[in-house]
Amino acid sequence: MTFWVSQSLNSLALGGLLFMLASGFSLIFGLMRVANLAHGALFMLGAYLGLAAVKAGLGFWAAALTSALLVGLLGGVMERTLLRRLAGRTLPQVLLTLGIAFIIADACLMLWGGDPMRLPAPPELSGAVRIGDAVFPRYRVFVIVASAAIALALWLLMERTRAGAMIRAAVDDVGMAQAIGISSSTLFTAVFCLGTALAGLGGVIGGPILSVYPSLDQDMLPLALLVVILGGAGSLAGAFVGAYAIGFIYTFGQVLVPDLAYVILFLPMVAVLSVAPQGLFGRRLG
């Protein structure tokens, strides 16, 4: 019983982190039809920047904020200077984002070395809480709550604000949105900044749980891709459901069949694709 409770909480924590990573990826994908393969690298860069900021003497929260802003800024620059030239051309976009991912990953390796490092959790969240029989780190409870709060905030942004309405309109039909006076250029950059900043924030928040190491990006990007494949690209609800589904499957897979945890991820993908090729909440993107 204790096992199931604590592993379920672990799954929720991983699911929350995956949501932070995949929601940004999915928003960018839905709006701009760009698969930002640098997203995993930006997540890792966020974690390293957070670590560097903490080492430089900043508090955890200030470090998280700084890191998210810097990564978001980098994302915005990427979109403005490079991705924008390649609008509508799939293969060059894939190569460009992949190339940027390699550069970021190798730069992280060069700057911070190959050894895994621990990002310390903020002192006010150290220690553990008791849930039934299970003892559970307080920080993970925070991750679960914080990611849920971010999901709620994103949902409110998308569904209840003017900016959200503009994004939804542009996801459905960019041409129409432009015709009624929405500046898709500003919107694209804003969403790219938001999505990448979320990845950076996820990296810092995930740091104390996942620790920070050179192939973190290669571990996280496939999970984010699976979330988007499962949930459907461009859908916030899809990213939410997909993230927690992958969180549970991967966490329990790692505990129950550690050798084959990766192979088990194959199963939900096959199951969903055979029923709904566009993902559970996905629409057909033309």
Partner: peptide, 9 residues
Amino acid sequence: VMLLGFTFV
């Protein structure tokens, strides 16, 4: 890896 990345870009 970095050279590969720059080559792509």
